[in-house]
Design a protein around this nucleic acid. Sequence first.
DNA 1: TCGTAACCGAGACGGTACGTCGTGTCTTCTT
DNA 2: AAGAAGACACGACGTACCGTCTCGGTTACGA
Lengths: 186, 186, 186, 186
Amino acid sequence: MARPRNAAIDGKVLAAAAEELRRGGYEGLSVDRVAERAGVAKTTLYRRWASKAELVVALITTLREDVPFEPSDDPRRDLTELVTAIAANLAATPPSLVADLAAAAARDPRVGEAVRALWAGRHQAVTAVVAKAQEAGLVLDHVAPAVLVDQLAGPLYYRLLVTGEPLTPDYARTLIDSVLGPEEPR
Amino acid sequence: MARPRNAAIDGKVLAAAAEELRRGGYEGLSVDRVAERAGVAKTTLYRRWASKAELVVALITTLREDVPFEPSDDPRRDLTELVTAIAANLAATPPSLVADLAAAAARDPRVGEAVRALWAGRHQAVTAVVAKAQEAGLVLDHVAPAVLVDQLAGPLYYRLLVTGEPLTPDYARTLIDSVLGPEEPR
Amino acid sequence: MARPRNAAIDGKVLAAAAEELRRGGYEGLSVDRVAERAGVAKTTLYRRWASKAELVVALITTLREDVPFEPSDDPRRDLTELVTAIAANLAATPPSLVADLAAAAARDPRVGEAVRALWAGRHQAVTAVVAKAQEAGLVLDHVAPAVLVDQLAGPLYYRLLVTGEPLTPDYARTLIDSVLGPEEPR
Amino acid sequence: MARPRNAAIDGKVLAAAAEELRRGGYEGLSVDRVAERAGVAKTTLYRRWASKAELVVALITTLREDVPFEPSDDPRRDLTELVTAIAANLAATPPSLVADLAAAAARDPRVGEAVRALWAGRHQAVTAVVAKAQEAGLVLDHVAPAVLVDQLAGPLYYRLLVTGEPLTPDYARTLIDSVLGPEEPR
DNA sequence: TCGTAACCGAGACGGTACGTCGTGTCTTCTT
DNA sequence: AAGAAGACACGACGTACCGTCTCGGTTACGA
């Protein structure tokens, strides 16, 4: 009955936003400029995303390429693969962006939900694998899997946001070694 | 040879800025308001700090209060004390402020330096104690102390900024248990 | 195609500006205050007038109220009426405002045009009456009417701006006597 | 008893002020810049002139070259000489400067006094000559000399500040013709 | 000759204004 | 209804200027 939304617009806007984000970070991204660059009216933009923050959340969500993960028989290998991927993904993101997202999340519950959902997707698989490793006796069972996940993922964000140290694949492996114990020679 | 700067002004402005920061985070801190609250002309403020960012840097630097810590004979107890204190400190800080600080740090290297120095002070003691625990054979020695510190401090920031879960003393203890192994009955 | 400008705003702003101008002259007119008094955002104001100067130009242009004047048969009486009116009008205006206007006019050609148009309206009628008086033989005809007008209007501004002497109706009559010769007893 | 003022400073400051005034007019003259250009501390400057306005007044006063005038036997020639000189002097001054001076005079009585004194000097001689002409029967004696002076000087300022028309020597002569009647062929 | 009072340079300070920018809401006309 | 265009409110930012102040250092004069 009503005019349907122009599906192409989402793409154009997100592309424009991505470019803006790339250049000036979250702070430097101006909604007016995004609209202009996308050749779209600001009204249209705000009809789809309620705020600058939500726009960026959507952008990030889009950027998240769902890596289909299928567990193998070797929990250590699975974990290594997962944590390394997360580290690589984070390393490729501008730190200020992650921080801005966190700040926006802390301020606005709606954004908070979106951002948490963004991370959650990435960390769920880790939890599953950790649980499996624990069942297989690879991990001391006096600790809840959730805590172990925190100790795998937390340090990544910690380095990115707090200490500023690099997130290398090596570092990811070190974290796993710390949790699972050193890899035993076969 | 010229009129000396009024030393009291720095204090007044920083105090005002601290209050503003506490309330609204970096984003919510308005230079005009800081000046007014401090009873100082904006001109004066800008003569000392070239921008809002620099003002916050100075503020953060000031905030770094070196908590004197003297280790006991019991590394586990020391660690518990330290990590619990950090957790309590973080829990008392508005999450958005921590995130804003991280974002500002990521954007401006000068801010970055100041903010990192702020955290560093708090985490140095932890590193020392972890090393001592390792020497005492309380920790598996296949992992560098620095990594263990990351796995103690990282989860705190992770919860605060990413998952939004609460930072309880219990959680702090759980982290330590995970790193040191469960406390053995004597 | 877009939202049209709110026509009422022009009026509100100009009224506010007029009040401000009346009180403190050009110098004392603050854009912030005008906006506030008009109940309008400064942005809106600046969208219409690019600067304080342009705003004042517009205001002056508006102020030019064409006083309808219909000449009688007696040029001397007409002239007396006109010059007295101008004198009264000037006497009622803060001298600094006239001077500020002149200064602004000298600085910005656009303002100049507007201000000149403002005065011109008032002086045109004088020129016409002087010409008529000359035709009627009341004035020596070796002088151009324009010069006589200058000698009627000029002294008013001269007193107001330069010597600071008062502009009384008596003075206006004295000027006319000087130009037309003393009134002859009938 | 105390250290005397450095006489050279006055000159340096006034020269700097003159240059500033030449470039940007009264508005564009910044006290800070004058001080810097003169190589003098602002304190020193303010010790001599209480405000920007007074400084400019002093500058203008300095600029006024006292044209020594000695009346001849021919009042018409004297008047022509005097009025032409005034016109030339005014024509050489930036109109905005004259207007700004008038505005400052209207606002601050102290400045007003100074500015009026500035003009007064120039116009006194005119009054004397006009009186002499009246005694000699060259002018209708039903008008006070002061009014005639207003009608000679007033139009000059009027043109400069209000209509913006040029102040030519010819115009000056026309004014005199209007007051004294056309020059009679000998 | 020596103290002291005023001068001078340097620049901090308060206060007030200016013009710009960004976000999110709104109004209107056009598809 | 969606979309384009852009007006609008609100509030922050950083800069400029003026006139006052507070220093330390210097210089003449008069006791």
